[in-house]
Design a protein around this nucleic acid. Structure first.
Lengths: 245, 245
DNA sequence: TAAATAGTGTCTTTAAGACACTATCAT
DNA sequence: ATGATAGTGTCTTAAAGACACTATTTA
C-alpha cells in the first residue's frame, strides 16, 4: 500500500469512494421450480422493473448483518440459510452513481417463503425459468407466479438477472456435497420431499433408489419413526436433518 | 430502497461509507506444494507481519480492474487466471478504519511466479502448509520458501490467513470440473506435469492410469506430437490445453 | 380390494483404484 | 544392456442407473 493511498484511506474526503450495498436473492420453491421474491421499482432508474431487495451497508455493519437487515426489513423474516454469493462492481450497473453490491442468497422453506409473500404484499413471487442444464450458466428469466401460463417475463432491473443466474449456479454446484438442500425443507420431511427439492434445483429427474441410497448412506438423516399425515395412500416416514460433525 | 437511503446515496457526504479494497492471492506451486507471494508490512498496523498485495478500488475502476492493477503494480505481471474469491467485511479486520475487501485469486504458472518473485524483491515466496484434507477447511500456515526446513511460520496480517485458506478451498473445489489446473502450467505440458499440479493442489497422490483416462476422455487435451526435452530417460509427449466450447 | 405411493432387491453400466506389464528414450 | 519414466491392459471395486417388485396405507 503506497503512502498516499495510506493517507487517503485515513481521510475519507480525499478520494471518492464507491457506495457499498447488498442485494439478497430470496429463493424458495414453488410448483416444483425455483422461485424468488422481487420488488417493483417505483422510481428512476428502472422504474417499473423488478429488483432484488437490497440496501446500503452501514459504516458499523458487517456485510452479513446488512443482508440480515434487508431480509428483516424487506421480507419480515430471518432466513435459516444466508450466504454470500459474489460482489458485482462493474461501472454502469447503477446509472445514478458508482455502487458496488455484494449479492447474498437466502434460502426459504415453503413456510418462510409464504410468510414473506403474504406479510409483505409488495414482494412479488416469481417463478424462475432456468433454460440451461447443469452448471452451464446463462440468463435466467422470471415469470409472475400467479397469472396466466402465457405471461410475459418480468423485466429485471440493474444486473439482477445475472445475480439470479448466479444463485441457481451456486445452489446446483453445492447441492450434493453440502447441506443447502435441507434449508429449503421444514424440520421434518420425507425422502420424497428431499428428492423433490433436489430435482427442482437441478432441473432434472433423479433415480429414486440411487437417491435414497446416497442420502441414507451419508448419515445425515435421522429417521423419526413418525409418518407424514394427510396423504390418501401409504404415508412416508419423516426424517430429520442431523448436522454432520 | 427507502427514500432517505436514496437521498443519502446521492449525497456522498450524508453517511460515512466503508472503504473498498481488493487483496490478491498470488498463487503458484513450488516444490510440489502451493506457494504464495507476500509483502512484509513496514508500518502499523501489523508492522512486520506478512500481507497479501492489495489496494483501494478507484471510483472509476471495476473490481476486476483493481485486482489487475494490483497485480501489475505490486508484482509486475498480468496473470492468465484471475477470479474473485469472496468479500470480507467484518468490523475489526483493519484497526485503522472500516475497510471492506474483495479477495481475488491469481494463478501463476512457474514462469510468472518466478518473474514476479525476481522482478519484485519485496515479494516473499512462501510455501503454504494446508493441514486439512479435501474441502474440510481450516487455517493455512505460510513458511519462507528459502530458509532452513525448520523455520517459524510467517505471521500473517489482518484476516489474510483466512483468505489464503479460502483460495485453497476454492481451487480444490473446482479443480476437476473446471480448467483452473491449466492456468498453473505453461502452454505445452506433459500429462505428468498436469498430474503433479493436481496432486499439489489436492495434497494427495492420484492414480496414474485413472488420471490419464479422465483427462484424455474429457477432450480438452490436444496432443502436439512433440516431446519434452532435457530428460535423461524416455521423454513424455507434450499436450496443449484446448479450451472446451 | 383397488389405488396410489413408499420402499427395496438386483442386474447392468460406468468409472475409479490397483497393479503389473510393455514401450521408449538417454547414457 | 541399464535405468528410469512413459504409457497401457486388465482385473477388482464402488457407486449410479434401470426397472421391476413387494409393502403399506387410505378410501
Amino acid at each position: 500500500m503506497s503512502e498516499d493511498a495510506f493517507l487517503a484511506a485515513y481521510d475519507p474526503a480525499a478520494y471518492e469512494r464507491p457506495a457499498l450495498a447488498v442485494d439478497v436473492v430470496l429463493l424458495g420453491l414453488r410448483e416444483g421450480r425455483p422461485a424468488a421474491l422481487l420488488l417493483r421499482r417505483a422510481q428512476h432508474p428502472f422504474a417499473g422493473f423488478w429488483a432484488l431487495p437490497g440496501g446500503f451497508v452501514g459504516i458499523g455493519e458487517t456485510l452479513d448483518a446488512a443482508a440480515e437487515r434487508v431480509l428483516r426489513e424487506k421480507a419480515g423474516i430471518a432466513a435459516p440459510h444466508l450466504e454470500q454469493l459474489y460482489t458485482f462492481g462493474t461501472l454502469g450497473r447503477d446509472p445514478r452513481m458508482r455502487i458496488v453490491s455484494v449479492a447474498y442468497l437466502a434460502l426459504l422453506p415453503d413456510r418462510a417463503f409464504a410468510a414473506a409473500s403474504e406479510g409483505m404484499p409488495e414482494l412479488m413471487p416469481a417463478r424462475l425459468d432456468v433454460p440451461w442444464r447443469g452448471e452451464a450458466g446463462g440468463p435466467v428469466a422470471a415469470f409472475p407466479l400467479q397469472g396466466s401460463a402465457r405471461s410475459e417475463p418480468l423485466s429485471l432491473a440493474f444486473d439482477h438477472a445475472d445475480i439470479l443466474a448466479l444463485a441457481i449456479l451456486r445452489l446446483r454446484g453445492k447441492l450434493d456435497y453440502s447441506d443447502v438442500g435441507f434449508a429449503l425443507l421444514p424440520e421434518l420431511f420425507t425422502l420424497r420431499q428431499l428428492q423433490d427439492v433436489h430435482e427442482a434445483i437441478l432441473g432434472l429427474p433423479l433415480n429414486k433408489p440411487a437417491f435414497r441410497r446416497r442420502m441414507l448412506d451419508r448419515g445425515w438423516l435421522e429417521p423419526t419413526g413418525a409418518r407424514e399425515a394427510g396423504s390418501s395412500f401409504r404415508p412416508a416416514e419423516l426424517y430429520r436433518f442431523l448436522r454432520p460433525r
